[in-house]
Write a protein that binds this DNA or RNA. Structure first.
Lengths: 338, 338
DNA sequence: TTGAAAGCGCTAACAG
DNA sequence: CTGTTAGCGCTTTCAA
């Protein structure tokens, strides 16, 4: 059996309470006894049993993260930020990954009742009002990452601003016509990005033209944010013939990749014939020279964990709701010319 | 305060032992009392406190995973396999991610002493003999994923066979000359892939030609498995002028991407002028039409977790060492012609 | 300052 | 079959 606090106490000739105190850096300990205990600890190669500590302290020093493993790079980056911050704040990270929506509910209720984690991050997933209510009422720390809910803390990227940046870039470059390819309009980011697009247009006195906007509502996967959807959408735009847009803002890089293929298949050049700007800055984007809007993914993970752990440890000033929006950054490559 | 086993016992009019038994599905319980307890549990919305269970059972039902977050897709895929299998086996997953090598040691010793997880997966990381010894002696379950050590269980991909597949593909296509670009020779996979390459050559009575082999020992990052290294290496091969190889096996897709750029920069075509085959099947590979050797990444995660949890639960027949090699699969796209 | 003792919530051995 | 009790290893009053 492993060495316990009793072994240490005996060896140091003190009570277990004393040992506990030095472990927990209690100030009220003589230097003398403290060092005796420290010596014993070292000699026995003792390390506290985390599970027992958790039980006694009612604190696990662990946070959970409910996250969909659908897509690629975005989640890896995010996870890295989350993991790194958690570790630096002495917390462990339990991963709950969601394949289908029903999983999510299971994890949500487990997390709430099992008390195995001190708080939870919910990533890119919507949360029902009654669950939100439960977390809120039970004061169980939760923060939504890349998502939002009225009564819960959340941190996300400013989609509207990102879309504005992209559109303004195209406007600034002087393109006479700027189309937009969006995801399914039922998805929140899709609507937000559309709003940003419209806003930028309006700010420059340009009219929003229905025929230059195509939402991938026909798509089935990933809310329309996929390669095929982008390909099909671009074809529609190209079918406009000589009325075809001179530039296009595509609401995700992966769709943009599809769109670029559609453009090339008609022997059109990028950006000479049609300029393209994407959104996300996935790995592929760099490779194909796609100008795009980069999300501060790692940072988002970091901020989220900071906030979550602050709540767990009851840092002051946490009652006000926390709704943070991180700003995006335009990464200029070749697909827009200029 | 949350509802405990005592509340349930009282409400059901039984002892806590009985409640515990129905929770743990002990067979020796009358259906009558069992249902009484079940009713109480439902009524109180009771759920066992995981931490308390862990302490009492000396079992956390949690596995740890020490994993480097360096590169992209491979680890995401692997993690997905690991996570999914762990969940299906009722285990939680704690992520310990490593940025630099020293982290690894810290996690290794923490895991060993904190007893917070029942077992651990060590991914793509080397382990010192003395640590290996400790795990072995303490019978602390560990399995190495994408790595190996004499005294520990391991699961990895058959690199030699994969390299053979790639090389044989080129041979089968009738290319007269087949070069190889490898990672740093100090890395294990690099050596293994070289061995497979040589083996395939030998089997077909072809001589290994030094001038057609370039290891990226000059590179600094990622053991030579990076884009720039591939680019530089390919240039050397191209500098051979009209003696330049007709085809090349590149030991990683990411290097292959670099190599392809070098080829195109000299206005050479792929595969008409030089055919290339990669290794890994990263996301980019599909996009650029790179024929490559696909690793069964998700499967590897699954097998590893299965094995680990079998060890944790002391399933029979686990004393013999477990050294599994998963086979690769050639994914044929356009970069080799044929 | 320090030791003793009472939990934390649950499992499991032991009676009955 | 079921209730009681003694831990699991640690934290935290409460006295001394």
């Amino acid at each position: 059996m492993a060495v316990t606090i009793y072994d240490v106490a005996k060896k140091a000739g003190v009570g277990i309470g004393t040992v506990s105190r030095v472990i927990n850096k209690s100030p009220q300990i003589t230097d003398a006894t403290k060092s005796r205990v420290l010596v014993a600890i070292k000699a026995l190669n003792y390390q506290p049993h985390t599970v027992a500590q958790s039980l006694a302290r009612r604190r696990t020093n662990t946070i959970g993260c409910i996250i969909p493993f659908f897509t690629g790079f975005f989640y890896l980056e995010l996870l890295r930020g989350i993991q790194r911050t958690a570790t630096s704040l002495q917390n462990d990270l339990i991963l709950y990954s969601v394949d289908n929506k029903s999983n999510k509910e299971i994890f949500l209720s487990r997390v709430l009742k099992e008390r195995r984690v001190d708080g939870v991050l919910l990533v890119s997933l919507e949360i029902d009002d009654d669950y939100a209510e439960q977390f809120s009422v039970q004061h169980f720390p939760i923060v939504l990452v890349d998502g939002d809910h009225a009564v819960l803390d959340s941190i996300k990227v400013d989609n509207i601003e990102g879309a504005r940046q992209a559109t303004n870039h195209l406007i600034g470059l002087g393109y006479p016509t700027i189309a937009m390819i969006d995801g399914q309009l039922k998805s929140v980011p899709a609507r937000l990005r559309l709003a940003g697009y419209k806003q930028a247009l309006a700010e420059h006195g340009r009219a929003f033209d229905e025929s230059y906007f195509v939402a991938c509502d026909f798509a089935e996967e990933a809310d329309g944010f996929n390669k095929e959807a982008g390909y099909v959408a671009m074809q529609r735009l190209l079918d406009l013939g000589d009325r075809r847009p001179r530039s296009v803002f595509v609401s995700s890089d992966i769709q943009a990749i599809g769109a670029m293929r559609a453009i090339r298949e008609r022997s059109l050049r990028i950006p000479e014939d049609v300029a393209v700007v994407g959104f996300d800055d996935i790995e592929l984007a760099e490779h194909v020279g796609l100008t795009t809007v980069k999300q501060p993914t790692t940072r988002m993970g970091q901020v989220a964990v900071d906030r979550l752990i602050a709540k767990v440890t009851c840092k002051p000033g946490l009652d006000k709701e926390f709704k943070q929006k991180l700003t995006t950054e335009l990464v200029i490559r070749e697909s827009c010319g200029g």
